[in-house]
C-alpha cells in the first residue's frame, strides 16, 4: 500500500468507526453520500486524469526541468507562479497534476510556489470572489498577495534545499 492510500485510509476508517458507534445508521448514510459525490465528479476526474496522462507522456522531461526544475532559480519560481494562476479546478483535479509535474522534475521551491499560487491567486477563484464580494475586494487581496508565492518558493529553497 502506498503512502497516499494509507494517509487517506486512516481518517476514513476512524470516521466510519465513529459513525457506526452512534448506532443511528450514519455510517451507511456517510458511505451513500460519498458514493453520490464520487459519481457526480467522476466525469471531471476522468477528463483530468486523461489530461495528466498525456501531460506526463508528451511533456519533455528535460524541458520541464530547465523550466521549473531545481536549478531554474527565481525565473523558474516566476513561471510556476504564472502557471498556478492559470490552473483551474479544485484540489482533487489540480493536486494530482502538480504531483505528476513534481515527479517529472519540478523543484521543491517551484512546486510550493505552484501550490500557493494556484490556491490563492487562481484566476478562476478570483472570478468567484468578485462575483460574491466584488471586484474592489478581489483587487485589494490579489495585489497584496502577488509577491508571496514567489517569496514562499525562495524561502522554501533556502530552508529545505532545491531538490525533491
Amino acid at each position: 500500500m502506498n503512502l497516499a492510500t494509507f494517509t487517506l485510509l486512516i481518517p476514513a476508517v476512524i470516521l466510519f468507526a465513529y459513525a457506526r458507534r452512534r448506532g443511528d445508521g450514519s455510517h451507511r448514510r456517510g458511505l451513500a453520500r460519498g458514493g453520490r459525490t464520487l459519481l457526480s465528479v467522476l466525469p471531471l476526474l476522468l477528463l483530468a486524469f486523461t489530461t495528466i496522462g498525456y501531460v506526463s507522456i508528451l511533456l519533455p522531461q528535460e524541458g520541464l526541468q530547465n523550466w521549473m526544475g531545481p536549478d531554474s532559480g527565481w525565473r523558474g519560481l516566476l513561471r510556476a507562479q504564472g502557471m498556478g494562476m492559470l490552473m483551474p479546478g479544485g484540489p482533487y483535479v489540480v493536486l494530482p497534476l502538480i504531483s505528476t509535474l513534481y515527479q517529472l522534475g519540478t523543484g521543491l521551491g517551484a512546486t510550493i510556489t505552484l501550490v500557493t499560487s494556484w490556491s490563492s491567486l487562481s484566476l478562476l477563484n478570483a472570478l468567484w470572489e468578485a462575483r460574491f464580494i466584488g471586484w474592489r475586494f478581489t483587487v485589494i487581496r490579489w495585489t497584496l498577495l502577488l509577491p508571496f508565492p514567489l517569496l514562499v518558493g525562495l524561502l522554501a529553497e533556502a530552508w529545505f534545499g532545491t531538490t525533491s
Binding site: 481518517p11 493536486l95 504531483s99 501550490v115 530552508w159
Partner: peptide, 20 residues
C-alpha cells in the same frame, strides 16, 4: 492537507506549511 500530504509527501507539505 491529507490529500496534499498523500500526493506530494511529508517534506514538501511541511515545507509549504512552514513557509506560508
Amino acid at each position: 492537507l491529507p490529500l496534499e500530504f498523500a500526493l506530494l509527501g511529508p517534506r514538501l507539505t511541511v515545507a509549504r506549511l512552514l513557509t506560508t
